[in-house]
Nucleic acid binder design. Structure first.
Lengths: 239, 239
DNA sequence: ACTGTTCTGTAACCAATGTTACTGCCAGCT
DNA sequence: AGCTGGCAGTAACATTGGTTACAGAACAGT
C-alpha cells in the first residue's frame, strides 16, 4: 500500500503538552466542566487538586496528541469530543483500535506514564475536543491518596481492555461489510451526526483494507438501503 | 463450524476457588516459590500477607479456571506453568488471545475482581500449573497499602494491553501461515519442548480457522523444512 | 471555460482462505 | 486379525478480499 496519508496536524503545532498557567476564565470553565463530567466520580479534595495542576486545552479535529515511539508527559481527561486510537505496523499499515470519549481517559497513556515507556499507538482527535491535561507525576501520588482515583484508573483499564476485546472480536469474527457498517454507526454516534464526513480512502485505512474494497461494500450497503453515498460524506440512515 | 469441542475439565472438578487451610508443607513450598517468583517485586510485609491469605494450588493441564459469564472470586499469581486465555463469540467460535506465564497474573481477572463483573473470556491451563490464589478483597486493600502491589497491578495491565495489541497485530497484519508458525513457536517456548502435542483441529480453534486450512499450511511449512508432522504432535525445528 | 486534482465507480483478475467430500492411516480394543 | 473412532492428507470448488487499471464526476483555482 503505497498511497500516502494526508498530512496530520502534529502536536508540535499545538503545544498541548506544555503547562502554561491558565487564565482565570479557563479555570472557571474547567471547574464547571470537570464537575459535570468527573464530579460524581471523584471526591472534592481530588477535584480541587485537578483544578490546581490541570490545564484546560481546546484541540481541533485531526491533531495528533501522541505518536508511536513518542514519550508521554501528561495524561488527558476528556471533557468533550473524542480521540481516535490507531495502531500501525512496520510497513505503515494502519488499523483503528477504538475511540476514547468524554468522562474517560486513555489507558495506553496511563501505562506509558507509569512505565515511562514509549507509546505503541497513535492518538489523534476525531472531533474537536476539550480536555484537561494532568502532569504524570500525580498519577502515583493520587493512586496512593484517593480511592476514587484508583477506581477511576482501574475502570479505565477495564474499559480499554474491553474495547480491545471488541476490536479483536470485530477483526476475527466479522466480515468486512459488517465491520464497515459498525464503524460508520460508531462514527455517527460519536460525532452526533448521521452525515459522516470522510473519504473512502480514510475508511480503508481505519479498517486496514483497500479503497476499492470500501467503495465496493459501500455501494452494496447503499443498495441495501443502509445509507446514501455522496462526495466527501456518507449519510447513514437511521434504523 | 459444527465440530464439537473435546470436553474440558471444568473447575468444579478441582475446587480451586475454595479456600481450605493449607498444610504446613504447602506453606513452606509456597514461601519458597513466592520468594523466587515475586520476591524482587514485593516488599517483605506484602509477601507475608500473601502467605497469610493465599492458597497454593497444583492444577493439571486442560482445566478451565474461569469461563465466560462466570464470576471471579479469587485472583491467581502464577508460580509455574502457563494459562491460555481464549475469547469466544455467540456462535461458539473461538480465538486464542494470549498466554499468561509465571511471575504474572491475569489482568482480566483483575478487572473482574474490581468491577465485580462477569468474565468476558475463558482461562484454562495450557500446561500443568502451580499458582497461589488470593481472595479478591485484598486487591483494594493492598492497592492502598503497598506501592509494590500498585506497581505490580499496573504492570500486569500494561502487559495485558500489550499482549492484546500483539494479538491484534497478528490477526490484522499477518497471514495465516505466519500466525500459525508464531503460535507453534510460542507453544514450544511455553512448554519448553519442541514437540508440540496437539491436533490440527485444536490449532484451528485457536487461530479461528478450519482444520483443513491448518493441515494445508502445516504441510507447506513441513516442505519449507520448518517442522516435521506426526500423529498427535508436531516437531518444530530449532532455527 | 480550462486545467489539474481528488474522489468515486467499476471491471477484470488474482490470491488467500473457507467448505465439502472423500480417502487412508494409526491406535486401541475385542 | 478385524473393527472402530479419531486424525491427517488432499482435491475441487466457493467466497472473500486485494490489486490493477481506467474513466468519469466534482471541485478548486485561474
Amino acid at each position: 500500500m503505497c498511497i500516502l496519508r494526508k498530512p496530520f496536524f502534529f502536536g508540535a503545532l499545538f503545544p498541548i503538552f506544555e503547562f502554561n498557567r491558565h487564565s482565570p476564565r479557563d479555570t472557571n470553565t474547567m471547574q464547571q466542566e470537570l464537575k459535570e463530567n468527573f464530579g460524581p466520580l471523584f471526591e472534592k479534595a481530588l477535584l480541587d487538586e485537578i483544578l490546581e495542576v490541570g490545564t484546560l486545552k481546546h484541540i481541533p479535529e485531526g491533531v495528533v496528541l501522541m505518536d508511536i515511539g513518542g514519550y508521554v508527559k501528561a495524561m488527558p481527561l476528556l471533557i468533550s469530543g473524542a480521540i481516535k486510537i490507531v495502531r500501525e505496523d512496520e510497513q505503515g499499515d494502519e488499523l483503528l483500535l477504538y475511540f476514547v470519549e468524554k468522562g474517560s481517559t486513555c489507558a495506553m497513556t496511563l501505562t506509558c506514564c507509569l512505565g515511562e515507556t514509549k507509546s505503541e499507538i497513535r492518538a489523534l482527535t476525531e472531533t474537536d475536543t476539550v480536555l484537561v491535561m494532568i502532569p504524570i507525576e500525580k498519577m502515583e501520588t493520587w493512586a496512593a491518596k484517593y480511592k476514587s482515583w484508583r477506581k477511576f484508573v482501574f475502570k479505565s483499564y477495564h474499559n480499554r481492555l474491553n474495547e480491545m476485546l471488541a476490536t479483536i472480536d470485530s477483526i476475527a469474527f466479522l466480515k468486512m461489510d459488517e465491520r464497515l457498517l459498525n464503524l460508520l454507526k460508531e462514527k455517527a454516534r460519536i460525532a452526533k451526526d448521521q452525515h459522516i464526513r470522510t473519504t473512502h480512502q480514510e475508511i480503508a485505512f481505519e479498517l486496514h483494507t483497500s479503497r476499492v474494497v470500501v467503495s465496493r461494500l459501500l455501494k452494496k450497503l447503499e443498495n441495501l438501503n443502509e445509507l446514501t453515498l455522496h462526495r466527501n460524506y456518507i449519510l447513514l440512515k437511521k434504523k
